[in-house]
Design a binder for these strands. Sequence first.
DNA 1: GTCTATATAAAGATAGAC
DNA 2: GTCTATCTTTATATAGAC
Lengths: 196, 196
Amino acid sequence: MDTPSEARERVLHVAERLFAQRGYAAVTIKDIAAEVGIHHASLYHHVPKGKASLFVEVMDRTIARHADGIARAIAHGAPDLRQQLYGVAAWLLSQPPMDMIRLVHSDVPSLDSTAGYHLLSTAHAALIEPIAVALQAAQARGDIGSCDLGNLAGGIFSLIQGLHLLPEAYQQRPRLEMAHELVDIFLAGVQTRTSR
Amino acid sequence: MDTPSEARERVLHVAERLFAQRGYAAVTIKDIAAEVGIHHASLYHHVPKGKASLFVEVMDRTIARHADGIARAIAHGAPDLRQQLYGVAAWLLSQPPMDMIRLVHSDVPSLDSTAGYHLLSTAHAALIEPIAVALQAAQARGDIGSCDLGNLAGGIFSLIQGLHLLPEAYQQRPRLEMAHELVDIFLAGVQTRTSR
DNA sequence: GTCTATATAAAGATAGAC
DNA sequence: GTCTATCTTTATATAGAC
């Protein structure tokens, strides 16, 4: 399962980028091979189990990377919730969009159910739960009031990911700056709830 | 172009739902025909110009419906921004998810560039701009302070759409209730900015 | 309006030479 | 590790009968 040849790494890297950008159905084996610069038949040397298996493998990598990036951002910003969320925003905006709606409604239904369930649960654990945990700690410190922390965490995630909509060209302001504005507003909102 | 036969309407209705759920690449002509209950060859009687053209046509309908639904929600709630945003949330949650990230990064690149550009600009005009206009009016009334209203409008949209992630089964709370909580927090946040 | 039959092209995948 | 060649399946699309 693990032969970290350099060619295989190139394949996984390209596949990860393309699948993340366009989703499972819109990326073909030939697309991936073409970007790697090899014939699509050669791809099966590195990924004998085929497209679906490749998708799950690279999504696992994506998710693991996000788990790491978000955990680092939250650890680094602690115990200041604002800095933690700024860090999460910087991380998410540094990565290709993680389109959870597409993952749930389009990609996962194309896979067998155990693989699909696995992706959804690890994605949730990597992306949403760490934010919820940070919110919980802030709540314990009295920085924020009583809210549905799962709802909040999902909201913050969606809020930041939504900035991936802006085409790079179209941007008047840096996305990170816009993310900070949204985080500030959100935080001001939850802090309002505290003082009641 | 417009022969509103009943069979054609059924085709468009099914196509609209499937394309909205899974995106352009993940839906086949056969999928649509199967759900309508006809042979896939028969589909070309109603949609002679093929899949890409069908996609653009039904996305136009989706977008037009959203333009109407959102405009109504905003008109109905005026001049109370909270009620307006509650209305927008109720509308968006009553519809299939409108996955703008997928539209931008996956669906549109599969189409020819003029069709793609048309979809993106009408989608923005239907979904984001009306919210921005409502925010502008609220700002004019002094209900909210100085913010990047485009950023805010996009944020509110993303915030609500993110609730489509929750599988129906998985929900502990009604999504609309969760949307209200998020809108309340957001509004409290922007109102904080006013009083500075 | 719907079907059967068929054409054409693309996608996923395998075998075997180099 | 990569290629050519081939196979199988699936997808889009067309022609013509009913």
